[in-house]
Design a protein around this nucleic acid. Sequence first.
RNA 1: UCCCCGCUAGCUCAGUUGGUUAGAGCACCGGACUGUUAAUCCGGGUGUCGUUGGUUCGAGUCCAACGCGGGGAGCCA
Length: 461
Amino acid sequence: MRLELSMSPTSARRSSIDHLLQHAEPGQPARIEGWIKTSRFSKNVSFLHVFDGSSPRTVQVVLSEPPSEDLKGRLGIHSAVRVQGTWVASPGGEQALEIQATPEQVQVIGPTDPSAYPIQKKRTSLEHLRTIAHLRPRTNTFQATFRVRNALSWQIHRFFQERGFLWIHTPIIAASDTEGAGELFSVEVPGQSEPFFGRPTYLTVSGQLQVECFAQAFSNVYTFGPTFRAENSNTARHANEFWMIEPEIAFADLDDVIALAEDFVRQISLATLEQCAQDFELFDRFVEKGVVQAVRSSVDKPFARITYREAQELLQQSGRSFEYPIGFGQALQAEHERFLAEEYFKGPVFVTDYPKEQKAFYMRQNDDGLTVAATDLLVPRLGEIIGGSQREERLDQLKRRIVELGMEPDDYAWYLDLRRFGSVPHGGFGLGFERMLMWLTGIKNIRDAIPFPRTPGSAAY
RNA sequence: UCCCCGCUAGCUCAGUUGGUUAGAGCACCGGACUGUUAAUCCGGGUGUCGUUGGUUCGAGUCCAACGCGGGGAGCCA
């Protein structure tokens, strides 16, 4: 099904520029509202380029008479305007249609003083735009980024909804730490000594334990919402607030989880590339050359799949010298993951069956007594974007593992109940939404993939 | 949290072994010209050299602390 998101007018009063550029006919009366991207003036003819965020394209407005000096001074970069006129075929090569108008048909709704405006009609570094995060949504790169971010989230919902998954709104305020470790932001009322909820509460680090309750009642479910980690991570791939997608499927083993993850990554990638084809031209040219073809070729073929043990053997046979030690029991470090995804498999690869010590308590224990039915999906450029597993559905094994790890079984009474009443094999995975966006677009810093990033020492806006 | 690098005009940067009045491109301002497309041409420098302290006759330049930013690592998604 081809999605026609631009078919409907933005409101009863006006149509989006994206809609008009596709549907206006020469000779029709024109009316647009938006902001000026660039303007050029000469003695006899002037050009205004107007955008409204609905399209990477601008509308060229042609004034065949010179505007007054006063009006001209108010038609600089990012002045808000309303233009009425007539759609005509454009003699210029860059656009099919343009608007012919008189200066009187241009109304300045909110002027911008170009000499004071922090964003200029030139290339500006992403680092500098981060310092004016309230203004960067109006730049070409961030216009494309946030249109793609929107499209990707829509395609994620669409993927699950078309397959009968229920979107479960798991709580943002959580009573325990899902992983039994990791750093949490606590939720409390300033000046109040007693916990508001009668117990310590935290911002969620994962909705998985809660969504498992719903998987044991609705079979196929997913979460899609914000997640919080108080880790003092200062990298281009970590933020303290990010969005995560966590599907959970019942009557399923690790193979089913992997099949779902592969189908999911392939479908949402291709659908987003198609929905935002024009925006991806920008990423392909200016952000990461060749990124579209790289993503396509990654998802065109079946994803590779190896066990953790095989991965360690591959690393040993590679003849490479790595900074970190390799061998069974050693962690797969970033350098190892990059070797596997970028050099050896040259595409996405599932690594399965990790040592139980490296993974969370709820993952299903394999018969070897050493490993668990876990998987990470590693992709070129980024490393891990998915972490998932089959869950331990056997009450005794799960309880034993909780005790082994020094955790308090009573804290997990409700979670253990799921294994007591109608327990079935089940599993799921977590996908970092921003990391997926970065993989598709080539954006290199997570701070540029989220509207207002929260990172250690930084929460302006 | 650890390692490395950076901070000079609105932006991106240059600035010599420490030396007198601080440099470029673009942006911006003024003018010219043009159915233009990040237009083009001519003219104009708009500055608390991140902050504080130190060394020195003299600091954008050397030293220290702090702040901010970037890259990498760990942790992870």
